[in-house]
């Protein structure tokens, strides 16, 4: 089994790394792949609540690294989705509790055992980010279409490139189709032009993200929504399916209707 190890990172905080890690992991597992989601935000544990697994944590990633427990004991198994596991962050420790070499060894110890390892990185460009990225071969950079997020993403991409990641791709999150249509927001193509990195997925601003996070349920297990659709497509593209990127201005109901009128009959992935 060839394990793909992907770090989800951004530079700027609050742009959607944890949301992307949780929902992408859930979707890949729903598709039948075995997935370990690692929360590398040591001291600011969050992935557990977003995934709805906070009540079942016994050990954490620092315990594994310090050999206070076996890896298998620390992995929290999701009861709704088969083959989905969470390796939680330590909450009462700081990021100094681990180093890059240890994180790399941890990731390598998962190779051959799972299909995917998805690592949720903390914000920033310091040791927390470096540790999270150390063991990954691929990187997803989450960016929102605003100047500060794009600028920070550029720094992160520079660091990832010098760290020789095999592939770097963008996930543009919180896209507001109406603002895109009226030219008030940076377009998705602007973001990829400026950063000179290709886009893996586009996620619209969607209340369902907040609702699913409140419940601790993956979006793709709930009722259909633009954001759920986006995650299905992102997972599909990671799995190598040829799913065209949607027109970002079409990702809400109004845009959808206009788009349908213009080219009814044409099918393809939206999101």
């Amino acid at each position: 089994m060839d394990t793909r190890i992907i770090v989800v990172t951004s530079g700027k905080g609050g742009v959607g790394k944890t949301t992307v890690t949780a929902n992408l992991s859930a979707r890949l597992a729903t598709e039948g792949y075995s997935v370990v989601a690692i929360d590398a935000d040591i001291g600011l544990r969050n992935l557990d609540v977003v995934m709805g697994l906070e009540n079942r944590i016994v050990f954490n990633v620092v315990d594994v690294i310090e050999e206070a427990c076996k890896l298998q004991q620390a992995l929290v198994r999701d009861r709704r989705i088969e083959n989905l596991f969470l390796l939680p962050a330590a909450q009462t420790r700081t990021k100094e509790a681990v180093n890059s070499k240890q994180m790399k060894e941890l990731c390598d110890s998962l190779r051959g055992k799972y299909d995917f390892v998805i690592i949720d990185s903390p914000a920033g460009i310091e040791s927390g980010f470096r540790n999270a990225a150390a063991g990954a071969d691929e990187a997803l950079v989450v960016v929102t279409p605003d100047v500060s997020s794009v600028r920070d993403a550029d720094r992160i991409i520079g660091l990832l490139e010098s760290g020789e990641k095999k592939s770097i791709a963008l996930v543009v999150n919180r896209v507001r189709p109406a603002m895109i249509r009226s030219g008030k927001m940076l377009g998705v193509s602007d973001v990829s032009d400026i950063l000179a990195v290709s886009i893996l997925g586009i996620i619209p601003e969607d209340d369902n993200v907040v609702i699913s996070t409140n419940r601790g349920e993956p979006l793709t297990l709930g009722s259909p929504s633009p954001a759920a659709r986006a995650f299905e497509n992102i997972a599909g593209r990671i799995l190598g399916r040829d799913i065209p990127l949607p027109d970002p201005g079409s990702l809400d109901e109004k845009g959808l209707l206009a788009g349908l009128k213009k080219m009814f009959g044409r099918q393809g992935g939206r999101g």
Partner: peptide, 17 residues
């Protein structure tokens, strides 16, 4: 448009960055 200003300003600031 604010889109164009964002694009231009970003391109400039990233040159320095």
């Amino acid at each position: 448009s604010s889109r164009q200003s964002a694009r231009k300003r970003l391109q400039l600031v990233l040159i320095h960055d």
